[in-house]
Amino acid sequence: MYAQTKIQLLEQLRDGGYTEADLVLVLRAYAVAAELVSCRFQGNNNSFIAHLVGVASIAAAHGAGAEIVAVALLHSAYRNGDFGEGPLEWLCDVAAFLLGRWSHTQRRFLYNKLLSWYRGWRPFTRLRLVSPAKRRRLQRQFGARIEATVYRFTALRWWPETLPALVAGSGALDSVDRAVVFLYLANELERTHDGGLLYHAHSEQKLAFVRDCGDSVVKLAEEISGPRLATELRQAYAWIMTASVPQELRLSPRWEAWSYLRPPLSARWRMGARLRKVLMHCVPGTPLA
């Protein structure tokens, strides 16, 4: 069983012979990751930080050093981390505020949709993913080597159409790219080993990737990490393709496909109150209630 919480990960590393300095590095990475993906959840409603810890735990269990474990905790920093883009995020809160009279469920659904549209909007995509300011922040905190690995993780295209080339060229990868591919493999195992993929609202789409690319991923695991990770992936893929979950535990198809942000209610509603004040200045007669 792989760790899913900070406590389990630290206990695993302590038992695994990592030094105190290693643990300090991992703790620092955890603190930053927990802040960046705070309130973010996966499409199956599992907290995002549990996924990051799971990837780190798999990496550690397969012999990765402390730096790679730290990268595993930070691997989604640029894709899903909230570095405080500020006003851009607030656009979505305006929408949530304007939809205030709707039912809670409708508001939540539309709020998530708007957030995902905004996040996917091309002019903001680069800003959302990697910006010099974000890179500088991670470089300051963890040094250039760790940040470069996180950056390359973000840059790598792990798509069905790119996997064959990755398999063919795996022998020529440099050490950083090998580490990145290893983390993608750990990421794959983390998403499948406990059946988490099956609870997604759109699990069929995700299972299609496993069906189409599973063999390539397993082959890549053999090349990059050795037979143990490859065997675990093969077993996880074989099992997940035949397993099913009770309908009552699956999410409604309206739910977000990949991951979504669910800030604390007081933060969301306070933001609404502030916007109301702004509107009062802009649009005379806006009710304060």
């Binding site: 909230d82 604390p264 933060a267 502030r274």
Partner: peptide, 9 residues
């Protein structure tokens, strides 16, 4: 709270 939502949380 996420950085973008910290005000008054």
């Amino acid at each position: 709270a996420p950085r973008s939502f910290r005000m008054g949380c």
